[in-house]
């Protein structure tokens, strides 16, 4: 369990610095009375008398999944290609997206939703490309949920966009379980964080449609073992298309951008 991330706290996300639900619905009110003490003598009902089993058989993330499906239908109707971009903190998501938006100018109109626990820094960096960007501050929550994305998307003029990029909170664990309604899950793995990252976080890597090896300009300096990393990605992310890029030098950016243009075209023709 994660004390730090406080995933249990709902709807405290703020959009572009405003917190619509600033009140805290905190269930942890102090317990003045204690339960489970001194129950040696059971009350008069016979134990097991009316025990019965109710079959539920429901998926737990059902509510998020339903909202995600709604997002997906809505985005599809608008002809938007939607990416959910995930990685460890600092793998280079924001830099990579800035370069992607710039390289796509004249080809795809891009809007961004970016999630961080705090600050609007990433949105400001992304807006510097000229693209509209909405910041979601998740407070203590370590992932984005479909509902937050729906709210943030309502602040963008989606009809003027072709590509909606969602930069998730830097985290390789929790975001794996939360569908946002995206078409493609894009997972970044920077050459500075070790070839075995995919082995350590199988659920997230397994769900990837695209795996991006980032910061390849640093590969030599960090003695990055490319074959090993690509081998791990092929095994752990069997459905992923793999790109190798440096946002700093621009190396490898064009095949990635061409891929996005093609996927957007396919979506429009479908």
């Amino acid at each position: 369990m994660c004390q730090e991330c406080g995933c249990n706290k709902k709807s405290e996300a703020g959009i572009n610095g405003t917190y619509p639900h600033a009140h805290d619905h905190d269930p942890d009110h102090p317990h003045s009375h204690e339960h489970g003490h001194g129950h040696e003598h059971e009350p008069n009902h016979e134990p097991d008398q009316e025990h019965r089993t109710i079959d539920v058989n429901e998926a737990i993330l059902d509510q998020n999944d339903r909202l995600a499906e709604r997002n997906r239908g809505f985005f599809k109707a608008k002809g938007l290609l939607v990416l959910n971009v995930l990685s460890s903190p600092g793998s280079g998501k924001t830099t990579f997206l800035q370069k992607t938006i710039e390289a796509l100018k004249g080809r795809l109109r891009v809007g961004v939703i970016v999630g961080d626990l705090a600050t609007e820094n990433d949105a400001i960096r992304l807006r510097s490309t000229g693209a509209p960007a909405v910041q979601i501050n998740t407070g203590t929550m370590c992932h984005l949920e479909a509902e937050m994305v729906a709210k943030a998307a309502s602040q963008l003029k989606l009809d003027d966009l072709d590509l909606l990029i969602i930069e998730n909170v830097g985290n390789l664990v929790c975001p794996a379980s939360f569908d946002l309604g995206e078409d493609l899950r894009v997972v970044l793995l920077s050459v500075t964080e070790g070839e075995d990252k995919p082995l350590k976080y199988p659920p997230l890597f397994h769900s990837a449609h695209v795996a991006v090896v980032s910061k390849i300009d640093l590969a030599a300096a960090t003695e990055f073992n490319r074959d090993l990393a690509l081998g791990n990605l092929r095994q752990l992310s069997p459905k992923a298309v793999i790109f190798e890029v440096s946002a700093k030098t621009g190396q490898g950016m064009e095949p990635w951008c061409a891929f996005l243009v093609k996927r957007h075209q396919e979506l429009k023709n479908a």
Binding site: H45, D48, Q49, E50, H51, R52, T53, I54, D55, V56, N57, E58, A59, I60, L61, S177, H206, R234, Q235, P238, K239
Partner: peptide, 20 residues
């Protein structure tokens, strides 16, 4: 061949409850 179809292992379900 690598498989892309996970048949089992993603379950996260409430199966049943016992009540009185």
């Amino acid at each position: 061949e690598p498989s892309v179809e996970l048949r089992r292992g993603l379950e996260l379900e409430l199966v049943s409850i016992e009540v009185s």
